[in-house]
């Protein structure tokens, strides 16, 4: 069974299981392995297109996103379907487990020097580090960007830019207002290979 098939099967199982999902007493590491890992990866490093890595994301960020999915305030039918079955304790349990996953260590090898340079300059110009940290590792309610999947980063950046993804406030939409589509691509290219890649 291929990766995408395993993800789809797990999604289907999660949806069919309905409320049973919320009542299982297993530790969240096991529940993560069954519910989240088929799509997001066992160690939280996603190998699936347009599916974010969860590794290294702060627990506060993770629980906030699960909350927004559950409330239907973030645009993903698949994640809303999964989160809708989660209790408050589940949101805590899953997000605490996610918060313990070590950050991704590897990045795509095909770095384009010019795009990396443009992406780095953009993260400075747009003050990304002001919230996401100088190492772009995020913290508390702010997500890690460094070494996230490039296709997901681009998808997220486009969503913020278009105003179709809104959190509690439109801070990201404002931050990206006036940024061109090509610039978004450069940023995603850079962040996916980002500053953490250079760290020893």
């Amino acid at each position: 069974m291929g990766l995408a098939t395993r993800c789809a099967a797990a999604m289907a199982a999660a949806l069919c299981a309905g409320t049973a999902l919320a009542q299982e007493p297993q530790p969240y590491a096991e529940r993560y392995a069954r519910t989240c890992a088929p799509c997001h990866g066992g160690a939280g490093v996603s190998a699936l297109p347009l599916t974010p890595s969860l590794a290294g994301q702060p627990a506060f960020y993770a629980i906030t996103q699960l909350f927004l999915f559950r409330e239907g305030r973030r645009d993903s039918a698949a994640m809303t379907a999964v989160a809708r079955e989660m209790s408050n304790d589940d949101l805590r349990g899953y997000s605490e487990h996610i918060g313990k996953l070590p950050p991704p260590q590897t990045s795509p090898a095909d770095a384009d020097a010019l795009r990396m340079e443009r992406g780095a300059a953009l993260t400075q110009r747009l003050h990304c580090t002001g919230c996401h940290g100088s190492d772009l590792a995020g913290g508390r309610q702010v997500p890690r960007l460094a070494l996230q999947r490039e296709d997901y980063l681009l998808h997220a950046l486009r969503g913020f830019r278009a105003g179709s993804r809104v959190g509690y406030t439109p801070a990201m939409t404002e931050a990206l207002a006036g940024v061109s589509p090509a610039e978004l691509e450069d940023m995603a290219h850079y962040l996916a290979r980002g500053p953490a890649a250079k760290a020893p």
């Binding site: 110009r125 747009l126 003050h127 002001g130 919230c131 830019r161 278009a162 105003g163 179709s164 801070a171 939409t173 404002e174 931050a175 990206l176 207002a177 006036g178 940024v179």
Partner: peptide, 17 residues
């Protein structure tokens, strides 16, 4: 917003929150 982030937006992008 996608098609209409007008002139003000270009200026805003350079600002901090």
């Amino acid at each position: 917003l996608a098609g209409s982030a007008g002139a003000f937006a270009q200026q805003k992008a350079e600002e901090e929150p």
